[in-house]
Design a protein around this nucleic acid. Sequence first.
DNA 1: TAGGCCATCTGGTCCT
DNA 2: AGGACCAGATGGCCTA
Length: 395
Amino acid sequence: MLTLPFEESHMMCEPRFGANYPRESLPESLEQERQHEPDRANSDMREAEDDVSDREEDEREDEHDEDGLPKKRGPRKKKHGGKEQLDRSKLRRQEANARERSRMHGLNAALESLRKVVPCYSKTQKLSKIETLRLAKNYIWALSETLSAGKRPDLLAFVQTLCKGLSQPTTNLVAGCLQLNARNFLTDHNGEVMFSGRSPYDAMYSYPGSDMNTPPGHSGSSLDSSAKPFRHYSYSGAYEPYYENPSPESGSPRFDGQLSPPMNFNGIFSLKHDDPPDYGKSSHYGMRYCSAPGRTALAHNSMYRVSPEARFPYDLHVRSQSFQAQGEVTAGLMLQQKRPDTPVLWARISLTCQIGGSVSLAAGPASHRKYFLSICELGNERKFATDILVVELQI
DNA sequence: TAGGCCATCTGGTCCT
DNA sequence: AGGACCAGATGGCCTA
């Protein structure tokens, strides 16, 4: 960013505007403050210190008290020696700057490694330092709570704990990050898993059945309707070392310092950042289609409507009227949130078509206001139109 | 354009 | 004495 090569650092060491900011122009009060509270002196005042220190020393020689006697004073500062000493002083300052720079880089590196082990790691959209620290604190807290509870927590409670004190954008990010991982385990209205695809994370890390891992007596959360699709907690990877592997040091691949927590391992950010520039900035949301190269657009005039079940202050917009469907197609549906102050924790979307073929529901992070539909096995060369699009959002 | 975030410089303080 | 650490100041970049 502003990093300059060390060779150029001497340019930065020059007084930035102190040289052009004569002390005579300082307000008297500031000048007095500077003398009596050196720790609060502004750096611009400090800038010229080197240049004026000798002059100050000379001026003090003439200071006398009310009785005309020389003021008592402490040990006098050593005057700058010759040019050599001045150069040495500058050199030491430059070295100190370099050390400080290096120290801050180390600090930033540590912060970066922290970013990688808290939820929502993204190379392209980094959490700020303060948000990283807050999220890390919340994450530790949430995991500690989970450990002391001895059972898998409610998703909502977990997310809420994670998001405490975070800014709204970070809150959205975290919530969305968690929920997108759960999209493959969503259930339809009958409670059946409709999408059996496996995410890269699933492929890498075996996922325990919730029934096997639910401690006795844990009959689900009080938010049954909302939590139902997430009975396989997407964020369970964070707990799996605890549930599956009693010893965190026993070689779990999840926290080897190389991988982000599983909840980040689903490409949500790649989706996000692969967006065209105008996509993310658009205030209107509609259908968006992401198809692999070579896939053919097969259908047009898809019709959508929000079912009466849609019960929230959202608008549904169709961005495009065509599907590209051959083999598997992923389409994106975006919703416009009328009340951005109200966090939406998850979305469930179901889609039926006039033609045959399996249509899977999908869901995404409501907080990102993007919902990706997976439409599989629609068949080749067959046009179709969607009949009903049901969107449910949990607020 | 204001505000947030950041890197850097800088001097003071503490520690070895 | 010198390095580490800290906090204030400053200016650049980015975004709403």
